[in-house]
């Protein structure tokens, strides 16, 4: 390798290294903003003020969903297997919404500590299988849920 080429190699390397460091620092500084949602643990810990809009993500607690008989209002509880918060929503839920499903909801806390959602999105997990396999796993009690995804990721650094 000629000295000139070595110099250019070094230059390209330095450029890439410099940009990587800059991006890493920037991304780290905006960590909170890049996070799409807060966990119920954050919310209970007081990470957001009542009235301030934000997203919360977690699992819909089994047996907690109650629907209104008159309109589209629905109430359920959201958990990250640490803390649980009550959520209320009026509107059409996505197809994948069900008990035990991971969801991300946009809204704000009201004064009574209930999260009043304006939009509910279902978070799909990374598991794909035919219905028969899912049934067999369910019977054996080995169903991989979104629990792992939410459990490990929702605890955010302050």
């Amino acid at each position: 390798m000629t000295p000139k080429r070595r110099q250019r190699l070094l230059l390209v390397g330095l450029m890439l290294g410099g940009v990587s460091v800059a991006v890493a620092l920037g991304v780290n500084a905006f960590r909170q903003n890049i996070m799409l949602f807060h966990s119920p643990t954050d919310v209970v810990a007081g990470a957001v003020q009542p009235g301030q809009p934000f997203r919360v993500g977690g699992m819909v607690v089994e047996g907690s969903v109650s629907r209104s008989n008159e309109d589209l209002a629905v109430k359920f509880e959201l958990t990250d297997h640490g803390e649980t918060i009550p959520v209320s929503f009026v509107g059409i839920l996505p197809d994948l919404f069900r008990e035990g499903q991971g969801i991300v909801a946009m809204g704000a806390l009201n004064d009574s500590g209930t999260f009043s959602a304006t939009e509910v999105l279902a978070k799909h997990d990374e598991n794909y299988m035919p219905p028969e396999v899912a049934e067999a796993l369910e019977k054996a009690g080995k169903m991989p849920g979104t629990a792992a995804t939410f459990g490990s990721k929702t605890v955010m650094q302050p």
């Binding site: 799409l36 999105l121 990374e126 598991n127 794909y128 299988m129 035919p130 991989p144 955010m156």
Partner: peptide
């Protein structure tokens, strides 16, 4: 980060989460 997009199904060290 917390994302709405699901994590990797195949490109991970664990076995793929797909039948």
């Amino acid at each position: 980060w917390n994302t709405l997009h699901q994590p990797a199904t195949i490109t991970k060290l664990d076995k793929p989460s797909m039948h």
